[in-house]
Amino acid sequence: MASLKEDSATAGGDQGGVRRRDFINVAAASFAGVGAVSVALPLINQMNPSADVLAEASTEVDVSAIAPGQAIKTIFRKQPLFVRHLTPEEIAAAEKVSTSELRDPQTLEERTKAGKKQWLVTMGVCTHLGCVPLGAAAGEIKGEFGGYFCPCHGSSYDTAGRIRKGPAPKNLMVPEYAFTSDTVIKVG
């Protein structure tokens, strides 16, 4: 009867070189690891958005009823989305600004679709800490640049939704969207 220490030494395979029997032990342990990982992956992935959430990741908006100077608030991915019909004056105000003096340089052109410069579509989420800026609904203050004003920490956006003053680092985000007809926008 060998002593226990010798036994475990044999089992551990210290006696010169890797033998075939040790290989099986290592293989079994590796398989256990691979199995654990392949089960862990779906268990982690389950926290990602489910199929019903992803399916609602695109929204259609009918903009025909929005008069120039007005905006609507709608919902895209459970967050507010602003669709604003700019007046010619607002467009002119936005285009007058030279991009060099902007914190996040972008032209109105870059932020709208070709030939649809009057339609400004942005997320209603302040790029500072995620509050909903004012200025989309009638009667709300639009801030000193005539666009949007975030009441949380005083970020002011201009008529192209660009950050002009206050702590926000970026312009209001323009989501991916396209005009499916003259009056219908598909967002997402």
Binding site: P42, N45, Q46, S50, A51, D52, V53
Partner: peptide, 13 residues
């Protein structure tokens, strides 16, 4: 049923 149909790998879990 939401778990069974829509959640990622929900049916498995």
């Amino acid at each position: 049923e939401h778990i069974m149909r829509d959640v990622n790998a929900g049916w498995f879990i």
